[in-house]
């Protein structure tokens, strides 16, 4: 009845951005995320992108039904999710705080 799990969450990339094609909010999220990573000195991180229009099964696998959504997986496999177009800079920077390179 439900889609089989295709991938365990532990094998997730550090950052995954779920989008739907070229929807305006998805576009904004890409831009906002790139800017924030740059600001915190982590432009080295290349977020993995999943387009639910093309891979709907991935939404079920990762329990992501709102787009755009930013999913962060740390080394222990713990996953946190941030909904929205990431226009709330304060929330976004707080969400990414542990990735920031101090200095």
């Amino acid at each position: 009845m439900s889609f089989p799990h295709q991938a365990g969450e532990s094998s997730m990339p550090l950052l995954t951005l779920f989008v739907t094609g070229t929807a305006p909010r998805s576009q904004r999220a890409r831009v906002n995320l790139a800017q924030m990573l740059n600001r915190i000195g982590r432009s080295d991180i290349q977020p993995y992108e999943i387009d639910l229009l093309e891979q709907p099964g991935q939404g079920i696998t990762h329990s992501v039904f709102a787009t755009p959504s930013l999913v962060k997986a740390n080394e222990t496999g713990e996953v946190s999710v941030l909904y929205g177009d990431l226009s709330d800079e304060e929330r976004l920077s707080h969400f990414l705080a542990d990735l920031a390179r101090s200095g």
């Binding site: 906002n32 639910l52 709907p56 787009t67 755009p68 929205g84 990431l86 969400f95």
Partner: peptide
């Protein structure tokens, strides 16, 4: 039939508006 668990993750945070096209795409599949 299919039963889809679309519960928002615990502790989810919000940083802006979001779309539901992804949801509709999942359901369509």
């Amino acid at each position: 039939w299919q039963l889809i668990d679309a519960r928002p993750r615990l502790g989810v945070e919000v940083a802006g508006e979001f779309d539901i096209e992804g949801l509709l795409s999942i359901v369509a599949a």
